[in-house]
Design a protein around this nucleic acid. Structure first.
Length: 649
DNA sequence: CGCATGACGATTTTT
DNA sequence: TCGTCATGCG
């Protein structure tokens, strides 16, 4: 497809079209749901590719989500024989740059990347070393606090007193300093570091920055409303000399503020790049009139927004159904019945329906109802392949074999399967490691050779364990990674451990391990594979379309669209979620409203919003009021169905 | 050291 | 309610 056709498909007006096609200078596109934002970006890329056939490698396209990146890759690859190595998420591109310049950041080129789980574990260990009570200070929240600092580009040296107002922040800061030094000792980085280390390298080495500035002639960003401050700084550095930057985003769809996303980046963009052309895409191609009206009226209640008026040429068709239910169970059954009905009457397939919930616990009662009604369903995002225990365990074996100073992997598997190396022994190893600033692996070796700290039984099994790792390490030089994974699963005793259990769970785990070795075949070496799994999001592995009803959180639904959307649980105390308001006040409420907006605008043709007058939460019966958001949807585009009792809406 | 038992606590969203 | 964590015993 040519650029011309694609642009037509978007039906931009003349001015918009001109701006979108402009190849030089910054461009900020604000788009409403369903206007094909990613398509706008693709158009730009295609356009540039057509104009500079020889210089394709000079284009950097970053997107926040892998979904969008993949979509682009597929469409562009189909049209062009070029490779686009610099097309990916902020994290994947930053990681690539960091590996190339690892030495400048005092890292080895195969540094490891911690995931959220690893971070929390590390924080926990540090807190116990520092004698900080993890009951009083939840390690998860400490880790999150550190992460938020990284989001706004504050390293341990840049945190100032204004960032240390609460006791919690002061404690987190103490942990942060140790955490960061532990990371460098481990030759590891976390997600935030990928960006921070880039920025640090760019600041310290003008030549390196200039080489990337020269190489990336054009920068493009999708889902711009989700960028955080660190990402913005990084972008601005790269865009500096040329100002060839194009960002696409929708401020009304910013739902990741709690993760450090900064809507203000959209406003700052206009300040930093004053020559920016701003294009508003207000025609919506996705939803029917009533759905769009509901969404627009709702979001108009927000103050912190650019403001845009969506319109559509689509007919209004049916109205938005608002259903009042006696309790959560009735709500679930209502959804199940409607799904079944639509299947029978309109002969639609199951996967055209989707249920979007605010909190993951809401899925349970819906699942129960679907099971009773024999409706096939799938909960998206709850089970993540690479986050499963057995997978992470085997990966830890692999990591440790490749890199002996991977302390987190060491801790993870030292006694799994049980080889009678218990807590006290591990603490002894930790102490030695801490005192002499060496890795746990080296500390363990040291203890075996030079001390009598451990009992005989433990000594022997520790020795066997270390030897096993060393054996695998040398075998990695000779054998390919798939074969190695198979060996490790066998020789670690992990397979036997699972086989002995003989439960349903253990056999799925074994199945997953086979799946893992299969996945390995797609990569040419183990480093590539480890890099891949640290950076992919789980959405990407959702490739096979199944004819089942999808159930997922509102957050997971961003960027997707469905014929029919159910939005259950619109109640005070659940949606807007009180915690969001507690923590962020008005800002939090507005983000909740944007979340509602995202939910509504996922629907192409039919939308159901429901609430229960009685719901069991955490084993307690609540009698919530209908959500305040319901009152913000105009009655004339709704069809209100009363429940079996008096509705309070 | 490993297992069992009981108490207790925490329940938003995740690249 | 469920799952995690600490404690205590064999």
């Amino acid at each position: 497809m040519q650029l011309e056709e694609q642009t037509k498909a978007l039906a931009l007006n003349a001015a918009q079209k001109q701006a979108v096609e402009a190849t030089e200078g910054p461009l900020l596109v604000l788009a409403g749901a369903g206007t094909g934002k990613t398509l706008v970006l693709i158009n730009r890329i295609v356009h540039i590719l057509q104009q500079n056939k020889a210089s394709h490698s000079q284009i950097l396209a970053t997107t926040f989500t892998n979904k969008a990146a993949n979509e682009m890759r597929i469409r562009i690859f189909n049209m062009h024989p070029y490779q686009l190595p610099w097309l990916g998420t902020f994290h994947s591109i930053a990681s690539k740059i960091l590996r190339i310049n690892a030495a400048a950041a005092n890292l080895s080129e195969n540094f490891s990347i911690l995931d959220a789980d690893d971070q929390t574990k590390l924080v926990k260990i540090i807190m116990s070393d520092l004698n900080i009570d993890s009951k009083q200070f939840n390690p998860k929240i400490v880790a999150a606090t550190i992460q938020r600092w990284k989001d706004i580009s504050l390293g341990p040296d840049q945190v100032t007193n204004t960032d240390l107002k609460s006791e919690f922040q002061r404690v987190s800061f103490r942990v942060y300093k140790v955490y960061q030094s532990k990371l460098s000792l481990m030759d590891a980085v976390d997600f935030g570091d990928l960006l921070l280390k880039n920025i640090e390298i760019f600041r310290k080495n003008a030549a390196i920055l200039e080489s990337y500035q020269a190489n990336f002639k054009y920068l493009m960003v999708d889902e711009y409303q989700d960028t955080n401050t660190a990402q913005y700084i990084w972008l601005r550095m790269l865009a500096q000399p040329r100002h060839n930057i194009c960002c696409v985003g929708d401020d009304d769809q910013s739902i990741y503020g709690w993760r450090g996303a900064e809507v203000g980046n959209i406003l700052r963009f206009e300040e930093d790049f004053q020559e920016a052309q701003i294009v508003k895409l207000e025609q919506n191609y996705r939803s029917t009139g009533n759905i769009l009206k509901a969404a627009s009226s709702l979001i108009a209640n927000n103050n912190m927004r650019h403001g845009k008026t969506l319109w559509t040429e689509a007919k209004s068709e049916g109205k938005v159904v608002i259903k009042s239910c006696w309790n959560d169970k009735e709500e679930a059954n209502f959804i199940a019945n409607e799904v079944k009905l639509s299947g029978r009457v309109n002969n639609t397939t199951m996967n055209k329906n989707t249920i979007l919930v605010r909190a993951i616990f809401q899925t349970r009662i819906i699942e129960e109802s679907f099971i009773n009604h024999l409706i096939p369903y799938k909960v998206i995002g709850s089970l993540k392949f690479y986050e499963r225990q057995e997978i992470k365990d085997i990966l830890a074996y692999i990591r440790l074999s490749v890199k002996q100073n991977d302390d987190l992997s060491f801790e993870r598997i030292i006694n799994k399967p049980a080889r009678s190396i218990g807590k006290t022994s591990i603490q002894k190893i930790r102490d030695v490691a801490n005192d002499t600033y060496i890795s746990l692996f080296s500390a363990a070796e040291h203890i075996l050779v030079n001390t009598n700290l451990l009992g005989n039984k433990t000594r022997n099994s520790l020795k066997a364990f270390l030897n096993l790792i060393k054996k695998w390490q040398s075998e990695f030089q000779l054998l390919n990674h798939v074969e190695m994974a198979k060996r490790i699963i066998e020789e670690s005793g992990y397979k036997d451990m699972l086989s002995r259990e003989e439960t349903v769970e253990s056999s799925t785990k074994l199945e997953n391990l086979r799946e893992l070795t299969k996945a390995l075949e797609d990569f040419s070496n183990i480093t590539e594979f480890l890099e891949h799994i640290s950076l992919i999001s789980d959405n990407d592995s959702r490739a096979k379309p199944e004819d089942v009803v999808n159930i997922m959180t509102l957050h997971a639904a961003k960027g997707l669209e469905f014929d029919t959307v159910f939005l259950p649980g619109w109640e005070e105390g659940l949606f807007p979620h009180p915690k969001a308001i507690d923590e962020m006040g008005q800002k939090g409420l507005e983000e909740e409203r944007r979340l509602a907006y995202v939910g509504i605008t996922r629907a192409k043709r039919k939308l159901y919003i429901s609430y229960a007058l009685s719901r069991r939460m955490y084993n307690q019966w609540n009698n919530p009021l209908p959500s305040r958001f319901l009152k913000e949807i105009p009655r004339e585009c709704c069809l209100v169905i009363e429940g079996s009792s008096n509705s309070r809406y």
